[in-house]
Amino acid sequence: MSGVPGLSLSGTARIDGQMLFGPLDISAPAGRWTCLLGPSGVGKTTLLRLIAGIEDVAVLDGAVSASDSAPLPGRIALMAQSDLLMPWLNVIDNVMLGARLRGAAPDRARAQGVLERVGLASHAAKHPDTLSGGERQRAALARTLMEDRAVVLLDEPFSALDARTRAEMQDLAADLLQDRTVLMVTHDPGEAIRLGHQVLLLTERGCEAIPLPDTAPPRAVDDAQALAAQGALLSRLMVKA
């Protein structure tokens, strides 16, 4: 992967003239994981959608830009809370969906390789409804990897998983998406602290950076420093606006 850019968003978002968030100035450094936390309704998902260029309701009075000044469209992959697998396609066809949608020839060998990396090699021909929740999210991760984009936006991708599967998926994603610019929205302080090179807390008052342990992510689930940071972050979240 060459030329991974950092991301930045600055400005104010409004829905029908009503302020949603801002004025904000958020940046996600190149090749690092930035985790974005905050109460519901503060506009985290909208922020992600504005960066992805798919927001139809909120209007950003400001700018989204890449640190290399090149346009972002075509350099972003998105992974959401729902796996968004097409039920009529089998796993490998879901993984190759992007190529199909762009009218390009799908690279089946590479898709098979990507499925191997997420541990779904033997599930390529299965349909999504025969997979478990964790396997479905692995397939979604494989589809995201297949896109091979420099910037990856994650919108609470693991929040519907059980604790063990979630921790496994976090490690897997941290491994497979390293060196990419990742912006992840999450509700889980533990997840943010485990995975973030940078953790941002978005509230009605603005955006602030949360202090992190010195260790490099992904931090162990029982890392004492990480657990302390997680506790501090949770207390910080519980302070009323």
Partner: peptide, 11 residues
């Protein structure tokens, strides 16, 4: 969600 995904993929 499917439509959003497809748009991000450049369809």
């Amino acid at each position: 969600g499917w439509l959003d995904l497809a748009r991000v993929m450049g369809a």
